[in-house]
Nucleic acid binder design. Structure first.
Lengths: 220, 220
DNA sequence: CCAACATTCGCACGATTGTTTGAATGTTGC
DNA sequence: GCAACATTCAAACAATCGTGCGAATGTTGG
């Protein structure tokens, strides 16, 4: 085998990963899976697609070894096959945000305040949360919180927020986060909190971004 | 616009990046461009494709804003549009190496000794090179060396190596590197050096890997 | 066996992609 | 205007993909 054929073979393998992440729906599935393992049912519902289409996309992702499946009773649970896959999603999205003007303007229009964090801000937020100066709330479904969450964050799912407002302090800053920059749950939470007189703001980070930045998550 | 349409729009933008990196040839072009800017001619020759096909692929990469073009006299030079693109290439290749068994066995077969480096080894290598305990040689074309190279590395292109063997010490370890894990130039250099009695070994890193690891490059 | 979850198959439609080839067109330096 | 580099166009072929839908098939727990 000559040099060219060898090279072609190598790049072809990497392109398998590229092909797997070349579909919007598959990217959405990856982001959802970055929040923890899910069943096909849950994934299809979350992504707004037919369960059979979800199954087909998952098959592609599995063939590229980006996800793995494990049967759990009557269900089959899918999960990312490693933290590096989560990091790849963050990397792809970051490159897109950085270079694609269309994405920039779309995000500016949807999310009024971006609240991107750098390494310094992340550490200082964690410090303030540890000292109780701010309250960090995780507004994702509690199952995703259980899989892993920001240190010192408490679980307060968006669906339960309205009923549990009294658990929050009115005299301290509240910081909400959800799945990441594309997720709208934290924005909705902040809107609701401000309506009720709380001092609330959101951050763009989710657990994948936190992890990709080399910071630790908390479990349970 | 409802929530679903909004989400679809966001993921669609990220998928533009995914589509751009879903072709083996485009990935090869990206890796070549990660070594420094090149003309269409040079890229086509390096990747072993027709100049018109290279032009078409570059058009796709430009549409995804992964590369930029600049006219320089009669030539048009292409370059990556940022270090994050180089990091994306490293990330994609790493995920592929980590998860795709086919790629693992192919690389084991081609490159006998992988010589992957971790953060610790990288720093210690740089230290030893600084103290002159080892000689680090960059066997890429000198133009690529000029764009950026590992600190304390000296340029010794593979094409000139045979004629310049007397410049190398016979009593010290020689470490060769080239474009990265997929590049075969350092392996060829090591084979040639050992034939002539030198103590030589290669490392898998190229400048993109060095950069992605957060380490500095040297210029000039 | 039944119910629930997941996958597969077949079929369809439209759309896109990669590649090759010949020819023409732009752009620049001289 | 000529030569050199780059891009575009047109045509053609094979191949793949996304999607949607109906139906069937596996697999598991009860």
């Amino acid at each position: 085998m000559n040099k060219r054929q060898t090279k072609d073979l190598l790049y072809e393998q990497v392109a398998r990963i590229g092909k797997a992440v070349s579909s919007p729906k598959r990217l959405e599935l990856l982001e959802i899976l970055a929040q923890g393992e899910k069943t096909v049912d849950a994934l299809a519902a979350e992504a707004g697609i037919d369960i059979r289409l979800a199954s087909a996309h998952l098959k592609v992702l599995k063939a590229a070894r980006l996800v793995e499946a494990q049967r759990d009773g009557r269900f089959i649970a899918y999960r990312l096959s490693g933290d590096d896959v989560s990091a790849l999603w963050v990397n792809l999205r970051t490159v897109a945000e950085e270079h694609l003007v269309e994405l920039k303007v779309a995000m500016d229009r949807i999310f009024a305040a971006p609240e991107k964090l750098d390494a310094e801000t992340r550490r200082s937020l964690m410090e303030k949360a540890r000292r109780g100066e701010v309250v960090v709330i995780d507004v994702r479904p509690s199952a995703e919180y259980d899989t892993g969450h920001l240190p010192f964050a408490r679980s307060l799912p968006l669906t339960e927020l309205k009923q549990r407002l009294k658990e929050l302090p009115a005299d301290r800053d509240i910081v909400a986060y959800c799945r990441g920059p594309f997720c709208m749950m934290s924005a909705e939470a902040v809107a609701l909190l401000r309506e009720h007189g709380f001092r609330a703001q959101k951050i763009a980070d989710g657990t994948p971004e936190w992890l990709a930045a080399g910071l630790p998550l908390a479990e349970s």
